[in-house]
């Protein structure tokens, strides 16, 4: 390697540290002085800056197909949470059980979309139960039940978490009212399944709101809560269709 190239390496080897702002004052001044007079090293710096900005802008990779089915097939069993006082089973309705319940009562084709949403709802509960663990805190030895909303001192804080938007709240209320009015129309088994699944989603909403009350700026939880509200809306719409077809 020529002496000139070695000289450039001496400078270009510092460029990543330069971009990260990690050079000491002395090194920084020397490098800047060199860059002022060296077009070759400036071009390398521009190239590295381009690489950094473009790679940082790469978006998330989305799976090309729905992967929930494969996940749901594995997580059939209830989750066991080990605590200092022993092991406790969190009675989470798993995806497979919810899906099976819907299919047995409503037939295999009518509720295909809803079943997939129920899978999603059960995955929401993954985060919700984790949130409960979080709220209990490490090392307390308190059995986790999955319902953080019932923890003492939570009511006031949770009430400060914004609910759904006005339009969404109105839609939800209208659909809930129509479902309540249809109690006599639906087969009791179907009604029980609808209520149970709505209870699952409602629990996910409550747990998400509890978590958000603890960490109001958390974008993940905010988006998560919005998605759960949307799932509830979708589920209620599907339920309304079931009522309509039964009536």
């Amino acid at each position: 390697m020529s002496r000139k190239l070695l000289e450039h390496h001496e400078w270009t080897d510092q460029l990543s540290d330069y971009l990260a702002g990690e050079l000491t004052d002395g090194s920084l001044q020397k490098l800047q002085a060199h860059l002022d007079g060296c077009g070759s090293c400036r071009r390398v710096l521009e190239g590295l800056h381009d690489v950094v900005s473009r790679s940082g802008a790469l978006g998330n990779i989305e799976p090309p197909r729905d992967l929930w089915g494969g996940i749901a097939a594995v997580i059939q069993a209830p989750v066991t949470v080990a605590t200092e006082v022993g092991a406790k089973v969190i009675a989470l309705p798993t995806a497979g059980r919810l899906e099976g319940a819907s299919r047995s009562a409503l037939g295999p084709s009518r509720f295909t979309l809803t079943a997939r949403q129920l899978v999603a709802a059960s995955l929401v509960l993954i985060a919700a139960s984790a949130t409960a663990t979080w709220l209990v805190g490490p090392g307390l030895g308190v059995p986790v039940t999955g319902s953080a909303a019932s923890a003492p001192g939570f009511v006031t804080m949770v009430s400060e978490v914004p609910g759904p938007s006005a339009g969404l709240a109105a839609d939800l209320a209208a659909l809930e009212a129509s479902l309540a009015a249809a109690e006599g129309v639906l087969d009791p088994n179907t009604l029980r399944i609808l209520e149970r699944n709505l209870g699952v989603i409602e629990q996910a909403i409550q747990d998400s709101r509890s978590a958000l009350a603890q960490d109001p700026g958390n974008e993940f939880l905010t988006d998560h809560l919005e998605r759960v509200y949307q799932r509830k809306l979708t589920y209620l719409r599907d339920a309304a269709r079931v009522v309509e077809s039964a009536g």
């Binding site: 992967l67 594995v74 997580i75 989750v79 993954i126 979080w134 490490p138 993940f220």
Partner: peptide
């Protein structure tokens, strides 16, 4: 996701869930 499901009990809230 399956691993997350099974390891939920190890999440102690010392970092954000995401």
């Amino acid at each position: 996701f399956i691993r997350a499901w099974r390891k939920l009990d190890t999440f102690k809230g010392q970092a954000q869930f995401g």
